[in-house]
Design a protein around this nucleic acid. Structure first.
Lengths: 247, 247
DNA sequence: TCAAAAGTGTTTGTTCTACACCCATGC
DNA sequence: GCATGGGTGTAGAACAAACACTTTTGA
């Protein structure tokens, strides 16, 4: 190796080692931050999409509404923390949940530095244990009529709705908001509620007819009309064969 | 108010207060977690999409490859931390970046509890200061030929690519990977590289012709052919008028 | 003059949209 | 027998996919 190359090489080598030593020290001394999860819990009520909010019972921000949240334990998976919070506060397990995004502005909670990862959950409203409503001062709100919320919880809900609107068109997750057996008018109202727009009945049903995983049962639901509407169920096995969905 | 109602009311009230007192204590005592950001830095090289990785210079996991990352300061916005890490390690500011998702498995880093939020950045490779490549032992890797990576960094890259593939079809972010003036053959190769599939030249150009924000200049780039290809530029103002994009 | 890349349209099939009437039933 | 919600099909427009030849020019 040429002399100047060698000098350059040694210099670079030292530079490199020093950089990593600094990195390594940083690695040990770094500041720690309180990490939270907040759950945007969606439910569906005949024709509108709703979120479940809790009434904050302590200062600061007493008497304002907030999402259900909790802190992440030191040895707890982030996803598990979200499930725990949902389960603690709703009594429900094995609920469809997915991460939305992480909110990390330094002053988002003006009282303390908290970074929060949001998760959205789709639950069947009637599975939600009614007694918890009073226990946690929880209440369902239509997404079109949200109350005043603490911190950036409104932004959290908005971004969860945006994501839900995108996802619900390409993945059959909407069924989590309906009972196992449902009618097509119900399903259409669900989609209209989520997307916030009217859908043509014939075009909607035409699309659904092409989906082999939507099984028509020999039963009718007569609660909404005299004629009665056929009940359907979502067949997961059949869906997994092709995994194509598009509304 | 009827007597039993009153008793019930008081009971519920106490229950509610106790719950919030516990919550409030929890709020103060909660465990804190080291929070990191990792940057998936994408670049484009004539016909393939690449990511920039750094060679880890210290134990544990010495000599393996990793994403560029850093820790979030106690008074630092999460987004700012990602920008800082990118800037420290690439010398670039004002780069297109967006949050991807947060990785929070308790044992994802087997040595220490670290939760990490990933950000993807699209940079123009030639803006990346070459001297930093040797300073940080960084290297560009084709996304089809990634080396062995520490922890869950491979998953991080995979989810960033998935997201990029979705986004690039509906938002004109791909231009961040090209110089200000670019040719249509370049643009097509970029899309082919990102999406990992061939695109029909005539159909591609037909779509682009409908987009008013793609301005053809009176210059040609003759570096790739004798005939030369017209240069174009992306007109942001024009795009903002309609904000519709779809490839 | 020829090799190499740039540029250009048409046809066909698929998907999306708009739209209006009959059916079954309980009251 | 009528009011209420459930159920069905078709025609036109927009969009997507497949496909082959001509142009330019430097070497």
């Amino acid at each position: 190796m040429h002399y100047t190359h060698l000098v350059f090489y040694i210099f670079e080598r030292i530079h490199f080692e020093v950089f990593w030593i600094i990195m390594n020290r940083t690695y040990k001394q770094i500041q720690q931050i309180t990490l939270a999860v907040d759950c945007i819990i969606f439910g569906f009520d005949t024709n509108k999409l709703e979120v479940l909010l809790v009434h904050r019972g302590f200062e600061p921000e007493k008497d304002r509404w907030s999402l259900m949240g909790g802190f992440v334990g030191n040895n707890e998976d982030l996803d598990k923390a979200a499930n725990r919070v949902l389960c603690d506060l709703s009594g429900l397990e094995n609920v469809y949940m997915e991460q939305v995004r992480t909110f990390g502005k330094a002053n988002r909670d003006p009282y303390e530095r908290v970074v929060s990862t949001t998760y959205s959950a789709l639950i069947l409203k009637k599975d939600y244990r009614a007694e918890l409503i009073s226990e946690y001062r929880a209440e369902w709100f239509s997404i079109n009529n949200l109350p005043d919320l603490i911190f950036d919880h409104k932004d959290m809900i908005v971004s969860a709705i945006q994501r839900l609107r995108r996802r619900v068109r390409t993945v059959p997750i909407g069924f989590n908001l309906l009972p196992e057996k449902f009618t097509l008018p119900q399903l259409q109202k669900l989609y209209e509620g989520i997307l916030g727009e009217q859908i043509d009945k014939r075009n909607f049903r035409k699309k659904l007819r092409t989906m082999d995983f939507l099984i028509r049962l020999d039963e009718k639901d007569k609660s909404q009309s005299k004629k009665g509407a056929f009940l359907y169920r979502f067949d997961e096995k059949e869906y997994n064969k092709a995994k194509s969905f598009n509304i």
